[in-house]
Amino acid sequence: MTWWRTHGRTRALVTRYVLLLVVLAISVGPLLWQFFSSLKGPQDALYGSSATFFPANPTFAAYQTVFEQVPMGMYIRNSLIMCLLTVFSQVVFPTLAGYMLSRQGWRGRGVFYWVLIISMMFPFESIMVSLYTQITDLGLDDSFIGVWLPGAIAAVNVLITRAAFSAVPNEVEDAAMLDGAGEVRRFWKIYLPAARGAMVVVVINSFIAAWDDFLWPFIVLRSEELYTLSLGLSRLASSSLSYDPRVTMAGSIIAIVPILVLFVALQRYFFKGVESGAVK
């Protein structure tokens, strides 16, 4: 006990890990259930009192079935194309708009702001039909562009980047102007580095949005050659004649992996926001 009392630092660390483990159990417990269910063999019951948490006869058969039943390579390729398109447009254009929105002293700024807010507040279902009609009128149905365009620039991302740009003190801008730096140069050299954290958040958010989106691509896309992963995986649950929940769960595990990999790669950049930029 004396050790516990005297080693404050160790105590704090132990407490921290205990808390981390508690939250870990809550957040990934249900996902682990899903993962272990996907590894169960046909003899292992999925539900009920005879069902166990860990599979008694673990097998990757369900994963094999996923790859056999649907062209996963094609779906993943299509999803990646959609994600690249979306991430590109969501990073570039909202950043430009967010920067200008953070600058004061131009006419129309307030109206633009309201347009952003309004566009965020409508449930998708109530504008969906109208959107689809627009897309068919433009001749963009059954194409990647048709899926991508309406969601190419999201208002929320303009607001997120705008918030990061606003955080740069005006004195920095004034100093740069005295040095003769033009608008584009100031944007590139001062503001963009300051908003890196926010931009990483935008990358992750828009990647996930494109990766997970289901209803809208489903309405726009007809040709299976264009199906994204989330559409393709819905096939696993949709067979009207045979259905194995293990395969569905395996499919949804496969769909999570790329996003988690992206997250692992990007998570340390969340901390390189304002403080690492030109503010210092």
């Binding site: 708009a97 131009w106 347009v115 309004i118 504008i127 627009q134 309406p150 620039i153 208002a155």
Partner: peptide, 25 residues
């Protein structure tokens, strides 16, 4: 800044959000 510069920066966002966000609204 000339009056039109800001609009140039926000043009892509305002077009896409206007056409596919505000019009259906």
């Amino acid at each position: 800044r000339p009056w039109w510069t800001p609009w140039l920066w926000v043009a892509p966002a305002i077009i896409v959000i206007g056409v596919f966000g505000v019009f259906p609204f």
